[in-house]
């Protein structure tokens, strides 16, 4: 099945939204110069992913793969070209991020979070059934994973360190296993 084509203006509109959101995020944290933002690794990996996705949707699969390869070598982010991520995508630290699936607007990916096929039932992490679908305003905290054919609703925050293998409705609070605090006897 060939996916619907995506126009360049749509891609650039998405990129502008990505840049605006990243600028707002960096501004609130440390302040950012507009000139350096374009070379920020977070923006570079999103930019290369958008270009490769545009090529993929236009049917240029080899060009899409070349740009994906460049992204993988330059920034270390493995964002597959068929992944359909909405505007306002922010990837905090690209190295080690592996993303494949569908997401709505304003997805936030924190360091080392993953999105993709499930471990165990099938070895496939290619396109097709078996990939997660996320709603709008989803936050993936560090080292979490959304694995396999699950549907995650809008405004869900996936906590750090868990693997999500079940559907989550909108506006739900997801909780993983809690850490235990043991009182040490050898420390007064």
């Amino acid at each position: 099945m060939t996916p619907a084509r995506l126009s360049w203006s749509e891609t650039f509109a998405r990129l502008r939204a990505d840049r605006r959101r990243l600028a707002a995020l960096l501004d609130s944290q440390q302040g950012c110069q507009p000139g350096t933002l374009l070379f920020h690794p977070s923006f570079v990996c999103v930019f290369l992913y958008r270009i490769s996705h545009q090529f993929f949707r236009a049917g240029h699969r080899y060009l899409a793969r070349v740009v994906w390869h460049l992204n993988s070598l330059l920034t270390g982010a493995d964002i597959a070209a068929p992944a359909d991520l909405g505007e306002g995508l922010v990837i905090m630290s690209p190295p080690g991020t592996a993303i494949m699936g569908t997401a709505g607007r304003n997805l936030t990916v924190m360091p080392c979070a993953g999105l993709g096929g499930e471990v165990g039932r099938r070895e496939d992490i290619g396109a097709g059934p078996g990939l997660p679908v996320l709603g709008d305003d989803v936050i993936l905290e560090p080292h979490c994973g959304v694995l396999g054919p699950v549907k995650v609703g809008h405004r869900v925050r996936v906590p750090a360190g868990i693997g999500l293998t079940q559907d989550v409705p909108d506006d739900m609070l997801v909780e993983g296993p809690r850490p235990r605090f043991l009182h040490r006897r050898d420390v007064p």
Binding site: G161, I162, G163, L164, T165, Q166, V168, P169, D171, M172, L173, V174, E175, G176, P177
Partner: peptide, 11 residues
């Protein structure tokens, strides 16, 4: 792992 054991409640 226990990391796959997830609970949900409405926010």
């Amino acid at each position: 792992s226990r990391a796959l054991r997830v609970t949900m409640r409405s926010r």
